[in-house]
Structures are given as C-alpha cells and as structure tokens.
Computed example of a mutant assay.
Amino acid sequence: MTREIRPAGGPMLAPHEVEENVATFMRATPVGRRWDVESIENWELADAGRLTEGQRSAVRFVTLIEDHLPGYFAQYHEHFPVTDDVEPQTYMHNRELYHFTVRWAAEEDTHARALARYQTASGLAEPEPLRAELAQEGSKRFSVPYEHAVQYFAYTLVQEKATQIYYQQLRDVVSDPVLKDLLGRLSRDEARHFAFMADTVELYVRRFGDRTVEPIREVIADFRMPLADTMRGYWRWALRIADTARYDHTDAYEHLVRVVSRAVETRSDKMEEMLRFVTSCRTVAQPAAR
C-alpha cells in the first residue's frame, strides 16, 4: 500500500546545525575544483569498443539510475518543503537543507549528463534512442515516503556510499581512459555526498539517541536501491553488472554502523540491537564496529 506523501516528521536538527553541515559540504569542493561535462576535453577519445559487453551494460545501467535525478530531487521538495504552510522553525530547517539539495542535485545532474555524453561520444548509443530510453524510466515516480527526517539521510547515506563503491570498482576494471577518468570524478562526488549524509546522521544519533533507532532500523529492513521497484528487469540487470564489478549495496551497511558507533560513547541495549541487525543484513556479515 502506498503511504500518503507528507512532510518529514520526528525530531529534527536545529537550523544552525544544518547550516554548519552544509557549509562543511560546500567547503569540500571549492569553485576551482568543480567540474562539468564541458570541462572534459577528450570526449573524442571515448571508445566503447575498449569495453567488455558487461562493462557496456554497466554504463547503460548507471546512466539510467543517475538520470532519474528529477525524481530524487522531488523527494526533498515534498518531504522538506519550503512553502507558506510550514511552521517557521521547520521552514528554517528546510531552507538550510535546500542549500545542500540544490548543489547536490546540480552535481548529480552533471553525472547524468556526463554518462549520457560518454555513451554518445564512445559509440555506445545514438542520441535519440538514448533520450527515449532515459525518458521511459525517468518518467516513473520515485518514492521513499518515510515518516522521520533522519530516515531520508540514513537512506541516502547507504545509497551514496553503495554508488561510490561501485564506481570505484568499475573504474578499476575498465580500459577506456575517458571512462576511467569519468568514473573517478563521479566516485569523488559521491564520497562527498556520503560525507554530508554521514555527518547529518551522526548528529541525529548524538542528539536524539534511542529515538533514532527504530527509524534507522526501518530503513535497512525495507531498503531498496533507487529504481529497484520500478525499472523493468532491475534485479537481473543488477546481477549482470555485478559480474563486471562487485555491486552489492549492503557493502555500505558497515559505513552506517561506523557512523552510528562514532556518535554514541555508551550504547543502550536498543542501539546495540539495531547495530547487530544492520550488520546481519549484509550479504557477507561482519562484526559490528566497536
């Protein structure tokens, strides 16, 4: 059953705490280190003929995922609204968060454009059929209607770290230098996005303690990567690209465990049980961080 879409609730950080996290994120990439599709000057050297069939499939897959950016961005508008019906304190929180989301969205949109450009420049796809393919998936609604604010950050923490790990793994096996460089750029951006989410989740856990336990547990219990429930053949495709480079979103769970562990000096029984649960959900279970 689809849950009603409504603004995120539960305990929320103070606006100044969000502002500090956003400032840290912004400082991580000063203007001189930012990039865009037009700043990559060697597109003419891109050659999909240097890729295996599995690597070509992986590029197509991640392009579809990244190109769904309008759906991801809409989630933050819906659940952290900046409209006239939001009470002032919540509005101030959401307005500070909005500074992050617009930068994050711009960077993710650059990822989508760059991957599409690689496909057309390398001969992997023709522009019009590619646009049609992206539109077919991109028009589908993306929704993770959680009740608690911390859940959106915990979900995106896992999603961004899993994506970063996959880009690193894929970069290590491809032989086209243009794609290798591009995947390195994407990976570095995803690492920064993860860091923002990690800092935010850590602050939530430090401030609200056991009140964050059940919400975070729910995220992991029901976790699906973006488009897993809407893209036709998602799971078959995910298994196929995992044969090219390791693709397992549960690899990111250990990073969530570390973030939560770092936030609390003395863990309650509820917190300990949640950490054990998250660890047990990994494909290859590891002991919880101490």
Rank of each mutant, 00 (worst) to 15 (best):
Gly71Phe: 04
Ile5Val: 14
Trp235Arg: 11
Ala8Leu: 11
Leu124Gly: 08
Glu133Pro: 02
His79Cys: 09
Ser143Val: 13
Glu108Trp: 00
Asp84His: 14
Ala195Glu: 11
Ala132Lys: 08
Glu17His: 14
Tyr91Ser: 04
Arg206Lys: 10
Glu108Asp: 06
Met231Cys: 02
Ala228Cys: 05
Trp237Gly: 05
Val213Ala: 11
Arg33Val: 03
Asp36Glu: 07
Gly49Thr: 15
Arg236Ile: 13
Arg232Met: 11
Glu126Gly: 12
Thr101Tyr: 03
Thr101Lys: 04
Ala74Pro: 01
Asp210Ala: 07
Arg50Trp: 00
Gln55Pro: 15
Ala114Thr: 13
Leu227Asp: 10
Asp229Thr: 15
Gln169Glu: 12
Pro127Phe: 00
Val22Thr: 00
Phe196Gly: 02
Met197Gln: 10
Asn94Leu: 01
Ser57Phe: 15
Gly138Ile: 03
Glu190His: 00
Asp269Ile: 14
Ala106Asp: 13
Asp199Phe: 04
Ser57Gln: 12
Asp248Trp: 01
Ser57Met: 15
Glu108Lys: 01
Val264Tyr: 11
Glu87Met: 11
Phe100Asp: 00
Arg276Lys: 14
Phe25Tyr: 04
His193Asn: 11
Asp181Gly: 09
Glu38Val: 04
Gly54Pro: 05
Glu133Gln: 09
Phe25Met: 04
Asn94Lys: 02
Asp47Met: 07
Arg246His: 14
Arg3His: 08
Leu51Cys: 06
Phe153Asn: 10
Glu218Leu: 14
Asp210Glu: 13
Tyr155Glu: 09
Tyr204Ala: 04
Pro177Asn: 02
Ala125Trp: 00
Asp199Ala: 11
Asp222Leu: 10
Pro127Thr: 08
Arg60Cys: 02
Met1Val: 15
Glu126Trp: 05
Ala116Tyr: 01
Val22Cys: 03
Ile165Phe: 01
Tyr152Gln: 05
Glu17Ser: 10
Met231Ser: 00
Asp176Ser: 03
Asp172Thr: 06
Ser268His: 05
Val278Glu: 00
His79Phe: 14
Arg103Leu: 10
Tyr234Gly: 05
Leu97His: 10
Pro70His: 08
Ala191Val: 01
Leu97Glu: 05
Glu17Asn: 12
Thr29Leu: 11
Arg113Gln: 14
Glu87Gly: 09
Thr2Asn: 09
Phe223Ser: 08
Trp237Thr: 10
Leu45Glu: 12
Ala112Gly: 13
Tyr247Met: 06
Val86His: 01
Arg267Met: 09
His193Lys: 05
Ile40Cys: 09
Gln75Asn: 05
Thr163His: 01
Val59His: 01
Thr83Pro: 06
Met225Leu: 12
Val37Cys: 12
Tyr98Pro: 06
Ala242Arg: 09
Arg224Leu: 13
Val278Lys: 04
Glu20Ser: 13
Ala242Glu: 07
Leu239Lys: 07
Thr230Glu: 11
Tyr76Gly: 02
Ala228Trp: 03
Phe153His: 15
Leu115Ile: 05
Gln75Lys: 13
Ala195Cys: 06
Ala58Ile: 11
Ser175Gly: 09
Glu19Lys: 13
Arg95Pro: 09
Gly233Phe: 00
Val257Phe: 01
Asp210Gly: 08
Asp176Tyr: 03
Ala252Val: 02
Pro81Leu: 00
Met197Val: 00
